[in-house]
Design a protein around this nucleic acid. Structure first.
Lengths: 212, 212
DNA sequence: TATTTTTGGAGCAAACGCGAAACAGAGAAT
DNA sequence: ATTCTCTGTTTCGCGTTTGCTCCAAAAATA
């Protein structure tokens, strides 16, 4: 199975969480079956693309019927490893970091921020949304106790690279980087960027230069 | 010139803000010239790709020399319309909305949040980081005064679609959507999604299924 | 002057994403 | 039972993007 999963295009992989969340909504609203066109309307992805995305995983649907919501949901749960909660650290409890702490990832994602870190003495020991804030120096120790492999990076830009190195050294293998900095990390560490400024500027540029 | 710009691949367009910001850093640090390989190290984009991205705009560099930072910067400023400040509304002053208000887009982006909107009576009239908060009902009036064409949407998910419709009706043509909701809007409106949960889940999925 | 550096341009192959069309099979209607 | 319709599955081809390689020309350097 793992060999097959290797072949899934990255673009498809990015859409999976989207599908999963919408299926959850459907399930909770009591819907039992769903067609690719319905899904398409909801998640704004071409129905043919959805069908092919699904077909990477084999025959999930029934012809002339559609997809069974519950079956599809349980399948995605397995595929996305939604059974177990993924533990996440958050590093840098500023405005954005605080907002993310209060943003409830757990509810729909089965990911959970288990600890937060900062260097500001005023923040240490505080509790935001049930997450306790430690000093960065405690990272290695905390890592031993709560074995998170992913960190959300929301420190100020000048501290980004240095902090990332600390994270890597402590054994973090995935970083969700909210800083504008392009991080230099070993090849074994995966970094995803969410660059708010770039997103905004790209939108501006597209609006001005790619009229719809 | 506009005809040429149409031909720029979207993938390139998305990288432009990235280049721009790094060039700004270089400029402020006093560097006068830069090579594509230097840029490549910094922004983590293949140097050949960078050269080709640049070459879409004509011959910007000098052979055997590299690129003149100041010239390149001023060129991008023009191309990205960085001369004028793009006005932006922010709708939904919750945790994330507040964080974005405090996040200083203006400094590097020449985009500025000029007004914020909410429906919570306690928020109306408040001032966060110099941005005054109005009631959503005032949107049409404020729009007339401060002609922003872009809105950042940070309302709770259940209110997303309804709010988006209000924005469209008021004449907003670009929405940066931070809600998990997939918005249904007219074709004339461009929506970019930043879906925090999806980003986090995608990272989890990649870590587990695409070993580096 | 000779050498090194670095761009710009062309070309190419591989990967990828996506839309469309053909196909097959299940359910519904008559 | 037969036909019709809907829908998933599969395959195909087109366009985009990317990384790579050459090469020539220009600039800097020694």
């Amino acid at each position: 199975m793992n060999i097959d999963q290797q072949k899934i295009p990255q673009a498809t992989a990015k859409r999976l969480p989207l599908y999963y969340r919408f299926l959850e909504n459907l399930y909770h609203s009591g819907k039992q079956r769903v067609s690719s066109t319905e899904l398409s309307d909801a998640v704004k992805v071409d129905s043919a693309t959805i069908r092919r995305d699904f077909s990477y995983f084999g025959a999930l649907g029934k012809k002339g019927y559609g997809y069974n919501v519950q079956y599809l949901l349980s399948f995605f749960r397995k595929t996305l490893d939604q059974d177990e909660v993924t533990k996440v650290f958050l590093v840098g409890v500023g405005n954005l970091g605080t907002a993310l702490l209060k943003y409830n990832f757990t509810k729909s994602d089965n990911t959970q921020i288990v600890n937060a870190f900062d260097v500001n003495p005023d923040m240490i020991g505080q509790d935001i949304s049930g997450v306790e804030i430690y000093h960065m120096n405690d990272l290695p120790d905390v890592k031993k106790k709560r074995d998170a492999s992913i960190a959300i990076l929301t420190v100020p830009a000048p501290a980004a690279q240095e902090t990332a190195e600390q994270l890597v050294e402590a054994g973090i293998t995935g970083i969700l980087n909210f800083t504008p900095e392009r991080l230099t990390v070993p090849e074994t560490v995966r970094v995803h960027h969410i660059d708010l400024s770039v997103e905004l500027q790209t939108l501006v540029y597209f609006l001005k230069n790619y009229p719809l």
